[in-house]
Simulated scan of single mutants.
Amino acid sequence: MIQKHDIQTEARNRRVLMVAYPGVHQLDVIGPLEILATTQFFIGDGDLPYDLKIVAVQAGPVKASSGLTITAETSFADVMKHDDEIDTLMVAGGHGSSSQLKNPKLLEFMQTMAPRARRIVSICTGALILAEAGLLKNKRASTHWFWCPIMENEYPDVTVDHEAIYVRDGNVWTSAGVTSGMDLALALVEMDWGHKVALEVARFSVMYMMRPGGQSQFSAHLLAQRAEDPAINDALSFILENPADPLTVTSLAAHAMMSERTFARRFKDETGVTPAAYVETARVQAARVVLETTDHTIDQVALETGFQSAERMRRAFHRHVGISAGEYRDRFRMTADPGARPRAGPG
């Protein structure tokens, strides 16, 4: 039985616009919108929590990269003419995004509507469209791991996070590939309606968990899936599950029942990195999640995730993330904002 939460707020019918274009990835469009739409089942009776619209150059069918068709309900011109304020402006990614970087109508739409939106969101390579429109200048952002170096090269005024599945910088949210757009949408639900509602939406959508943005899209977990050697694979899993352990080459080699020299060689052959580099990456990944989701002190987080001291964790964060652990928490810890109302301008 679905349990509805009685949330007293006037911020209903939040207007959400999702930008689509030829060659868009269909799941980038539908996935986040379905997460937002599902919220209606958990916040009590009354108006819908979100007013969802797909928008394109022209109203009508838009052919996705899959060959299937998405229907845009309205056009850029109509929205710019009639919508003075919106809650959320979203742009999807997909194979067609490259050609859209030089689409003047799309770029004009993004530049015109961004100041009218409470927040701006991109899914996957939609981040490149935001960057081309000048909306990521001097901001930290994420995109699909394959496109991270390209975005870094083409838009040097953007700080590209190669690892995070999604990033929030001010009122701008960017995400990595495909399913991470749904993780980002869950974070939006949590901000708008609280943690309990977001958790219900995640469960209803049969999502494994609510993943914080600090979880890596391409790092420790994916490297762990890549190893073919069973002993190395077991060592990788052991590191991920026990980041607070000493995790020296000596202890890991003993765990794998190999000599230290053999273990180090086979580890690098399987993963492309040294055991020490992998351990640090796994610890930073674990610390990012704790920083985003708990009130534990920086010293506690350092101990819980194996850094032993806040200073060692600070240096590791600067290497991997570009900011200290404290700065990371200040910028990216999720906080609920159930009473926020749509307003014009950056937030």
Rank of each mutant, 00 (worst) to 15 (best):
A133I: 05
Q26L: 11
Q308V: 10
E270R: 11
E190S: 05
A264C: 05
P338F: 05
W145P: 04
V201D: 07
L135F: 13
A114F: 15
A282K: 13
L33S: 12
R265L: 02
R119F: 01
M90R: 04
A224F: 15
A164T: 03
S97T: 11
S309Y: 15
G339D: 11
T9Y: 09
K102W: 07
A185L: 01
L222Q: 13
E280W: 01
D295G: 15
G347K: 14
G177R: 15
T88W: 11
M151V: 06
D269W: 02
D45S: 09
R203A: 04
S216P: 04
W145Y: 13
L186G: 03
G126T: 03
L107N: 09
L89D: 01
K81P: 00
F263H: 04
D299Q: 04
Y166G: 01
T262K: 14
P230R: 15
E85Y: 06
K268C: 14
K102L: 08
L106N: 03
Q58V: 07
Y155V: 02
T125G: 08
Q300P: 06
T71A: 14
G31L: 06
F218P: 00
L128H: 14
W173V: 02
Q300F: 11
E34R: 14
P275V: 10
A202P: 00
R118P: 02
I54A: 10
I323W: 02
N233K: 13
M1L: 12
M182D: 05
T39W: 07
R283F: 03
L223C: 02
F238Q: 15
V19Q: 07
I129K: 03
A198Y: 10
V19E: 03
K137G: 04
Q100W: 02
R261A: 13
A310G: 15
H195S: 11
A56L: 06
V160K: 01
G96L: 04
S205W: 01
L33V: 06
V167C: 03
A220W: 12
L27I: 08
A117R: 11
I35E: 00
L52K: 06
D183H: 06
I2Q: 10
G134K: 12
A20G: 05
D51R: 14
S142D: 05
F263A: 04
R12A: 02
T88V: 14
Q100P: 03
G60R: 09
T9A: 01
E292T: 07
Q300H: 12
V79D: 01
I35N: 00
D337F: 11
S180C: 08
M207P: 01
V29G: 00
D183I: 01
M258I: 02
Q40K: 15
V62H: 03
E260K: 06
H296D: 11
L17G: 01
P212L: 02
G194P: 10
I232K: 07
V197M: 02
C124S: 14
R265I: 02
A227N: 11
E85N: 10
C148M: 07
D84C: 03
D183R: 08
I70L: 13
S216D: 13
Q225F: 14
L303F: 13
P275S: 12
F238E: 11
I232D: 03
G31R: 08
S251A: 12
E260T: 09
Y50R: 05
R265M: 01
L186K: 05
Q217D: 10
S65T: 12
R14Y: 09
A127D: 12
N171R: 09
N103E: 12
